[in-house]
Amino acid sequence: MSEAFEPRIVGFLCNWCSYRAADLAGISRIKHAPNVRIIRVMCSGRVDPSFVLKALALGADGVMVAGCHPGECHYIEQNYKTIRRYGMLKHTLKAFGLEDDRVRLIWASAAEGQQLAEAIDRFVQDVRRLGPLNWPRFWNEDPARLAAVEKMAAEHAEAMEVPA
């Protein structure tokens, strides 16, 4: 490839802290990578893990979820639920055969424009290093893998035979 890989990243930002942090980064003209495309949600707790999977499946190379700092949630404690879902989501991603580093949860208060911009830059860099996302097919959809499995089955046919 002649051109450097520019990852497409979807960012889910909560209305109260992190979206305002992104606004503040703008107001303060803190330059950062343009790769993160922001979707506003009321709370990071609104981010259904399926949104993240959907974004990845539709061609995003990474997904960022940002909320208020733990203990500072506008809705008291909803970002704690985000933390729990995030852990589960990472497991799910691995189960799908995806790098779990493609999803990142970060915190930014409304005053942390600088920090958010830095976090965006870091994440973009990390996803760039991972390269474009290759959503693995199921083994039975992939002719090469299917052939490998069939070959293995043939080799071990005797052992696998069920006694009558």
Binding site: I39, V41, R46, D48, L58, R137
Partner: peptide, 29 residues
């Protein structure tokens, strides 16, 4: 902020991306 609206927003924001192939990805969508 319903699922349909946010789902459409995700689709729209990735207008220039190529959706992943395969059953796994299709299931996620």
């Amino acid at each position: 902020f319903n699922n349909e609206q946010i789902g459409a927003e995700i689709e729209g924001i990735l207008w220039d991306a190529r959706a992943a192939a395969g059953r796994g990805a299709a299931a996620a969508v």
